[in-house]
Design a protein around this nucleic acid. Structure first.
Lengths: 309, 309
DNA sequence: CGCGCGCCATAGGCCTGCGCTATGGGCGCC
DNA sequence: GGCGCCCATAGCGCAGGCCTATGGCGCGCG
C-alpha cells in the first residue's frame, strides 16, 4: 500500500539530523553510525525519491527548497513514530514504575498518551505502566491493588470504588462518502431504522458494542436490544473502519477512532436522533482519595484538552 | 534519536493490513511477499516491542487490546508517510501532468498538500507538478509559461501578472519554554527590543527574513532595517526550530512551521506589538483568467480550511 | 469419528544489502 | 601554499532478509 520507494524511518530521522546539524558527519555521529554509511543512505534517499534534497558544500550540507518540504513532512512521520515508541514504552512492564494505570481501549489509544505527555513535562522522570483491557477487567485490577488507578468508559460504575468523571466519549455511525446513506446525512436516522442497516459492530463483550446496544434498547423502550439481522461482527476497530471506508456498511466506533478519517473526508458521519451515544469516562480507585500521582493524572485529564464530543 | 527497537515502516504497514484483513496470509499477499516472510516480520515486531500484539488462531489472526492501541498509533505513522509520499510525487517531474504549479516554500510545505488532496477527491486522476523556489523565481516561472499558476508569499506583487489573495501567513517569534523571555510572554515585546535579542533568522534572500526585516524597518520609521548584532543566520527553517527548541535564541519562522511545537509545548510564542508580521498569500498567473484547473485550486485554497493566522 | 482444509510456524539455503575501515578530492582559511 | 574540514568512493565481510518446502493445529464437514 505504501509505495516501494518510501524511505526508511531511520533514513528520515537521519535526514532530520542533517537538517538540524548542518553536516552529514555530525548527523552520522549523532546516530552512532559511520560517516560513509550516512552519506550512502542519503544519496540512496535522493535516488529513491527522485528529488534533489541536499546541497553539499565543502563547509557542510544544507537543504534545497524541495529538501525543506521533504524535511517538514518527514518531521511529521518521525513525530508519529515517537508517539508510537512512547506509547509502547508505557505498555511494557519491565521497568521501575511509580504509577500503575489500567485503562480501557479507547482511553489508552487516544487520550492517555497526551495526558502522560503533559504529566511528564512537570515530572520528567515519571515512569508509568499501563494495562489495556475492557472496563470490567480494569475494575478487577483496581480492586486487586495491581494498579493505582483505573480509567473506564462503561456506563455503570463498579461498587466499592471511588470514581470521578474525567470526560466523555461519543459513538458515531460512519459510512464511506459513496455509500447510499451518506447523501441523506442531514435528515437524521431514527432508532427504529437501525434494524435495516448493514451495521459493523464489535464482537460481544466489547464496551463499544454494549453501549450501542443498550442505548438502542432504551430508545426503543425494550429490555433487550433488538435483533440486527444485517449486522456483521468484526474483530477490531481497525477492521470496522477499513470495512466502512470500503463501502461495506455502517461502522459503529468511537468518535476518536473515526476522527482522522472524517477529517480527511474518507468517512462521513451519519446523524442519529434519539440515541444516547455519549458515555462518561471515569477514573476509579480504592479508598477515599486517589494516590498523589493518580490525582495529578485526573487533574490533567479534566483540566486540559478534553475529548471532543 | 528514535529508539533502536522502533519497527520498520513496512512492518507497521503490514500490521495494519493484518488488522484490516484478519489474516497474516492475506496481509502477506496484499503486500506482495510470501506468508512466512510476513509471519517472521510480525514475530520480530512483537519481540522488539516487548508486547503481545496478535492473537493467532487457526481461523485467522486478531489483535489483542494492546495490539489495537499499537495499530492506532501505527496508523498515524503510516498516514504521515503517505502524506510524505504524496508530496514527493507532486515534486517529481517525470509524469504527464495537467496542472503545473510553482510555489514558495511555506505554501508548498504546509498548505498545498491539503489543497491538492481536496482537489484530487473531485478529480482522482489529476496529476500536478510543483516547483518549489522563492517568491521571485515563482514569478519568473509563471512569466515564462513554465507553470500554469504561481503561489507566493511575498508582500509585493509582480507586474503584468494577475493575482488573487488566497490566505495569509504569519511570522512568529518562538523560544524554548525555559528561555528567560518565555516568562514575560504576556507583556509584548516592542520593535525596539529586537536589536537586543539573540534572533535566529534565515540567510539573506529568504522571504521570511525579508518580511521580518522590512516590517521592522517600517515599525522603526527607517528605510533600512536596523542592525541586529546578536542575530544568527541559519540555513533552514528546521535548523532554526531545533536551535530555538534547544534554548539557543529567538526563532523567527512561519506560524505553520512552529505550530506543532507550540501545540506540544516544546516552543512558546512571544507576543510582539507594533510589528506587521502577517503577510498575504497570493496566486498569480498570466492573462486575465487563470486556467480552469488553476481556478479550481484557488477555489479550494480560499474556500476551505484557510491557514490559521 | 476421521478426513480434509485453512492458517500459521519452522527449517534451510541463497543472496542482497548494509555497515565498517581506508582513501581520495574539493574548498576555505590561516 | 599547506592544512584541516567535509563529503564521496572503494572494497570487504557479515547479518538479515526473502524465498520454497514442510510440519502442526483446530475446526468443520461428510
Amino acid at each position: 500500500m505504501l509505495p516501494s520507494w518510501t524511505p526508511d524511518l531511520a533514513t528520515l530521522d537521519l535526514l532530520l539530523s542533517v537538517a538540524e546539524l548542518g553536516s552529514v558527519g555530525k548527523a552520522a555521529e549523532a546516530h552512532g553510525i559511520a560517516q560513509p554509511s550516512a552519506s550512502a543512505k542519503l544519496t540512496q534517499l535522493e535516488r529513491r525519491l527522485g528529488l534533489s534534497v541536499l546541497v553539499r558544500t565543502s563547509r557542510g550540507t544544507t537543504l534545497t527548497p524541495v529538501g525543506e518540504a521533504v524535511v517538514a513532512w518527514a518531521r511529521e512521520v518521525i513525530a508519529a513514530a515517537h508517539v508510537l515508541a512512547d506509547g509502547v514504552l508505557t505498555l511494557r512492564h519491565d521497568r521501575a514504575v511509580r504509577l500503575r494505570v489500567a485503562a480501557s481501549l479507547t482511553i489508552a489509544e487516544y487520550l492517555l498518551p497526551e495526558w502522560l505527555l503533559v504529566l511528564r513535562r512537570h515530572d520528567p522522570g515519571l515512569e508509568v505502566s499501563v494495562i489495556v483491557t475492557n472496563s470490567h477487567d480494569v475494575a478487577t485490577e483496581v480492586r486487586a491493588g495491581r494498579v493505582d488507578l483505573g480509567l473506564i468508559e462503561s456506563p455503570g460504575l463498579p461498587d466499592e470504588l471511588s470514581a470521578q468523571r474525567i470526560g466523555s466519549d461519543r459513538l458515531v455511525l460512519v459510512v464511506s462518502p459513496g455509500y447510499p446513506l451518506a447523501a441523506r446525512a442531514n435528515s437524521p436516522l431514527r432508532p427504529a431504522d437501525m434494524a435495516d442497516l448493514a451495521l459493523l459492530v464489535r464482537e460481544p463483550g466489547s464496551g463499544t458494542r454494549d453501549t450501542f446496544l443498550s442505548a438502542l434498547a432504551t430508545a426503543l423502550h425494550r429490555l433487550d436490544p433488538p435483533a440486527l439481522p444485517h449486522a456483521s461482527e468484526l474483530g477490531s476497530t481497525t477492521t470496522i473502519i477499513a470495512t466502512a471506508r470500503a463501502g461495506g456498511g455502517v461502522g459503529v466506533v468511537s468518535a476518536h477512532a473515526a476522527a482522522a478519517d472524517i477529517a480527511a473526508g474518507t468517512l462521513v458521519e451519519l446523524s442519529v436522533s434519539g440515541l444516547a451515544l455519549t458515555r462518561d469516562l471515569n477514573a476509579i480507585w480504592t479508598g477515599s482519595k486517589p494516590p498523589t500521582l493518580g490525582a495529578d493524572l485526573i487533574r490533567v485529564a479534566t483540566g486540559s484538552n478534553g475529548p471532543r464530543t
